[in-house]
């Protein structure tokens, strides 16, 4: 089955991105396809390669990047939400790309299931 994932929060204020990551990983392990993970609201902060969590903390930016690398997951950051928050191409972590909100709607249309993680 094809899943579309929407992440509405960044890595440091809410559990949403952690839950979304673990859900995405579990879905891939079960052999499902992740059509797209779309990052909206403060969720765009998951793409910021300049973020430096403390050494004993999990690094969600790197975890998402690794998932994209390993499973070719399409990680899309909303352009309008990103510009507001200063997230631009030159600070994007590997595997992320910036595109329009239409990519979220397209995910809803194409995926068999669309699920939101947020606050």
């Amino acid at each position: 089955m094809k899943f579309g994932i929407l992440v509405n929060e960044g890595p440091f204020q809410h559990q949403a991105s952690d839950s979304a990551y673990l859900f995405t990983k579990a879905a891939l392990e079960k052999g499902h396809e992740i059509y797209r993970v779309f990052f909206y609201y403060d969720g765009v902060n998951n793409a910021n390669k300049l973020s430096e969590p403390q050494a004993d903390d999990r690094d969600l930016v790197k975890l998402w990047s690794a998932l994209a690398e390993e499973h070719k997951v399409d990680l899309v950051v909303c352009v309008a939400a990103a510009l507001r928050r200063g997230i631009k191409d030159d600070i994007l972590a590997p595997g992320f790309r910036i595109s329009g909100l239409g990519q979220l709607i397209e995910s809803g249309i194409v995926a068999d299931r669309q699920i939101t993680f947020g606050d």
Partner: peptide
């Protein structure tokens, strides 16, 4: 359920509404 069970639940229902 664990995260795998979460995935199964999303699969077996027609759609998911996330109450935030």
């Amino acid at each position: 359920v664990d995260f795998g069970g979460f995935v199964d639940l999303v699969e077996k229902h027609s759609a998911t509404q996330s109450w935030l």
